[in-house]
Amino acid sequence: MLNQRTLPRIGLGTFRLKDQDVIDSVTSALSLGYRHIDTAQFYDNERAVGEALKQSDVPRDEIFLTTKVWWDRLQPQALLESFEESCRKLGVEYVDLALVHWPSPDDEVPMAGYIGALNQAREKGLTREIGVSNFTVAQLDQALSVPGGEHLITNQIEVHPFLANRTVVAHCQEKGLQVTGYMPLAVGKVMDEPVLKEIGEAHGVSPAQIALAWVAARDIVVIPSSTKPEHQQSNLEAMAITLSADEMARIDALDRGERIANPDFAPEWDA
């Protein structure tokens, strides 16, 4: 339906990672075979991510690099300048995916303006693809309806066993957009969940791997964050786990609408 470029099934999230920590994390991930790196202006680590890319032997054209513009820079000119700044910090000529990190609070900046500018960034070659993050069903429909919106390929949203986010996931998939799920491990909370532990024991893997397998089985790209090579490796291996219909249903039942990323400027979420 849309001009959709396939996102790698798993990527490395870099939220909360700074300086040498993020350099080491990205370096390790690339050496293990990750080819999707997710950062953002708000993370204040683009320069360090760029340093890791520069040091890596992996060719630039084999890496899918995502960054995001913060909601205070959504005015069209500011948005374009912010992505130019991101490319400079990352040390690249372009990113593979540029996202609007959050919709404009209270629609202070008209959506037609910033989605149009996002598409201008694509047309100028600052990014290969464009998308949004943390958009509700209504906001997504509005974004798709304005000029430039037809080029959106993804909505990056919070998804983990305690927040299945079914309404938005189903709507994105119905519209032909790839869903990218952040915080798929619920900042580590999945490790203490008895159901995930039990299913993990049956497969000989960790609860975290089961959580990732569950998200991936829903055709959602996962971008877990990890600084430890052994965890990065196990996250990669989770993509090969096949869960039974009964196991999927048991994990489905863990959904309790537990939202972790919910700042005061967030939109009114879908149920």
Rank of each mutant, 00 (worst) to 15 (best):
L2F: 04
Q4W: 00
P8Y: 07
L17W: 01
I23S: 09
D24A: 14
D24G: 04
T27G: 13
S28R: 14
D38S: 01
T39M: 03
N45I: 06
E46P: 03
A52H: 09
D57S: 12
I63K: 02
Q77W: 02
V95C: 08
V95W: 13
V100C: 14
Y114G: 07
I115A: 01
K124H: 11
G125R: 14
L126R: 05
T127Q: 12
G131Q: 10
T136E: 08
A138F: 01
L140S: 08
D141P: 02
G149H: 06
G149R: 10
H151N: 07
H151V: 00
V159W: 01
A164K: 14
R166W: 07
K175V: 10
V187D: 15
P194I: 03
V195I: 13
E201C: 04
A213C: 05
V215H: 09
A216C: 09
A217L: 08
I220D: 10
V222L: 06
S225V: 04
N235G: 03
N235R: 11
E237W: 02
E237P: 01
T242D: 10
L243T: 05
S244M: 08
A245I: 06
M248C: 09
A249I: 02
E258S: 08
R259K: 09
A261Y: 05
E268T: 14
W269V: 08
